[in-house]
Structure formats: structure tokens, C-alpha cells
């Protein structure tokens, strides 16, 4: 039973801020972010790593928070959707999602945005097929993906300093 197992210390940087807490080993990163840190932009859509709604970036790489033990992120830098905007305002991806109509119910949006951010950090000039492939670990039931793909393409252009075509 859980009583026999000791909590362990977890230190990480979440959206730029240092965080230090004690967690049970079986707590997932999803649970710690949502329940301990109140970062409820991290969504649980399936709990088995299929839907992608809980995606966060851990040291710059996309991970399913529901399939990541919190302790695995010890010493890491974690970015959630709440950390995308800064004092200057929304990120380019967030702005592009709004303008292209890429947001409907909004439940998949945090994961989609982080996957998009992740893609554009690695590939400033993705073509449509590359965008679709990169987003294909994320399920959206509302949009049919067309406007999300358009938004990512527009965001890529804007990040390169070009006008979206």
C-alpha cells in the first residue's frame, strides 16, 4: 500500500519559475501540474497517451504529461500552455490560432499549441505535410484540423518575419 512508499523531492522549472515539492512516485506530471500547481491548461482527455491534450514540453521536447512520472521531470524545465504568452502578450502561435479560427471547443488547443511551438522551434519552414505529420499525435474532434494546420503555417511565416500567404 501507499503508506510504505516514501515521497520524494521534485525540483523543476515550470514556465520559468522554480518549483520544489514532495511527490509520491506514482504521481504523474499531469497530476502535479494540474492538482498541485493549478496549471489546469494541461488537459486529461484519455489518460493513456493517445489524445495528446496533456502535452507539455519537458526540456523543449513534447511529452504526454499523463504518461510521465512527475519524478522523471526532476531537474527539468517544463513549459505548459500557461507559459506560452509573456508580458508582451500572446505568442505568435497563440495569435495565429485565434486569427485562423483554429480554436473551437478549446480542449485540444493547449496540446496543439505546444506541439506547434515544438515543431516551429525545430523547423522554421515546415510544409503542410510536415505540419500534419507533427500534429498527428493530437486529436481534435471539432475542427477537422484544416484551420489548425493553416494557423501553424501562418505562425511559421510570421516567425520568419514574413506575411502569411
Amino acid at each position: 500500500m501507499s503508506l510504505a512508499i516514501k515521497s520524494q523531492g521534485l525540483r523543476m522549472t515550470v514556465n520559468g519559475e522554480p518549483v520544489e515539492l514532495l511527490v509520491q512516485p506514482h504521481e504523474t506530471l499531469l497530476q502535479v501540474l494540474r492538482e498541485r500547481l493549478d496549471l489546469t491548461g494541461v488537459k486529461e482527455g484519455c489518460g493513456e497517451g493517445a489524445c495528446g491534450a496533456c502535452t507539455v514540453l519537458v526540456d523543449g521536447l513534447a511529452r504526454r504529461a499523463c504518461l510521465t512520472l512527475a519524478l522523471e521531470a526532476d531537474g527539468c524545465s517544463v513549459l505548459t500552455v500557461e507559459g506560452l504568452a509573456d508580458d508582451q502578450g500572446l505568442s505568435i502561435e497563440q495569435q495565429a490560432f485565434i486569427e485562423a479560427g483554429a480554436v473551437q471547443c478549446g480542449f485540444c488547443t493547449p496540446g496543439m499549441l505546444l506541439a506547434s511551438h515544438h515543431l516551429l522551434e525545430q523547423n522554421p519552414r515546415p510544409d503542410e505535410a510536415e505540419i500534419r505529420r507533427h500534429l498527428s499525435g493530437h486529436i481534435c474532434r471539432c475542427t477537422g484540423y484544416a484551420k489548425i494546420v493553416e494557423a501553424v503555417s501562418n505562425a511559421a511565416a510570421r516567425k520568419r518575419g514574413e506575411e502569411p500567404s
Binding site: L39, T40, G41, V42, T80, V81, E82, L84, A85, L90, Q94, F97, I98, E99, G101, V103, G106, T109, P110, L113
Partner: peptide, 13 residues
């Protein structure tokens, strides 16, 4: 653009 989209992209809704 939809009025509800900004809080959604911020993950704040």
C-alpha cells in the same frame, strides 16, 4: 475572430 478564443489559447478557461 471568436470572442472565446483568447482565453482558450491561454489555457485559462
Amino acid at each position: 475572430p471568436r470572442v472565446d478564443s483568447e482565453p482558450k489559447v491561454r489555457g485559462e478557461v
